[in-house]
């Protein structure tokens, strides 16, 4: 009973937070609501006895991904404007498509005969099982992950250093202090690089 109550509480909170993410006018606050929504998801994982996924959810999604999004917002000029138009020209087509997709999914959910499988209870030492699997059957994917992370690291460094080398044209435009000469110079630098 308490279990079901907690599930519905966190599910409702997750839906409310997701709605706040897309409906709030301030994009920074949207990011904050996203963190809240991800936390509700972590709580749902705990209710499903998926403890490790819950921890990863908090550590990676709230601790890292949301931070990246917040950084991206802070790195962008004038994105935090509350008077910006929230909908674009597809505001009529998009809901129709979304409703169609919802209809399809609902049809499938209703038509399928759901049977309850006999699942053995989750073993208590799930973390140890994951560790053993990572070191036996999945040892190669595990090594590949390190290479993948290395690629991400080098790529991020390369792009960030590239940003350093050529000044952004729009930035020069907005300050207006440097005049046209600098803008042309920046464009020229870009041409030379290509």
């Amino acid at each position: 009973m308490a279990h079901a109550l907690m599930f519905y509480l966190f599910a409702a909170l997750a839906i409310a937070a997701s709605l706040a993410v897309i409906l709030h006018r301030n994009i920074f606050k949207s990011a904050t609501f996203l963190a809240g929504m991800l936390f509700c998801l972590a709580a749902l994982f705990v209710l499903l006895d998926a403890e490790f996924i819950a921890v990863v959810q908090v550590l990676i999604y709230i601790g890292a991904i949301t931070i990246l999004i917040v950084f991206a917002i802070m790195l962008t000029t004038k994105i935090n404007d509350e008077h910006k138009e929230q909908f674009n020209s597809q505001k009529f087509l998009a809901p129709i498509l979304a409703l169609g997709l919802l209809g399809l999914i609902l049809t499938i959910v209703v038509k399928i005969q759901w049977t309850t499988a006999e699942i053995s209870p989750v073993p208590s030492d799930i973390l140890g099982l994951i560790g053993t699997a990572l070191l036996s059957d999945f040892i190669f994917p595990f090594d590949v992950v390190s290479i993948l992370l290395l690629v991400a690291l080098i790529g991020a460094t390369y792009i960030a250093k590239q940003e350093d080398r050529k000044p952004l044209v729009t930035e020069v435009d907005e300050t207006g202090e440097h005049g046209d000469g600098k803008v042309k110079h920046a464009l020229h630098a870009e041409e030379v690089e290509h």
Binding site: I60, A64, L68, F71, L75, S146, A152, L153, A156, A160
Partner: peptide
């Protein structure tokens, strides 16, 4: 923009 690079570095080691 340098702050973003630090954030990315952090994410990589977080995943590790």
């Amino acid at each position: 923009i340098r702050y973003y690079l630090f954030a990315l570095l952090f994410v990589v080691f977080d995943v590790e």
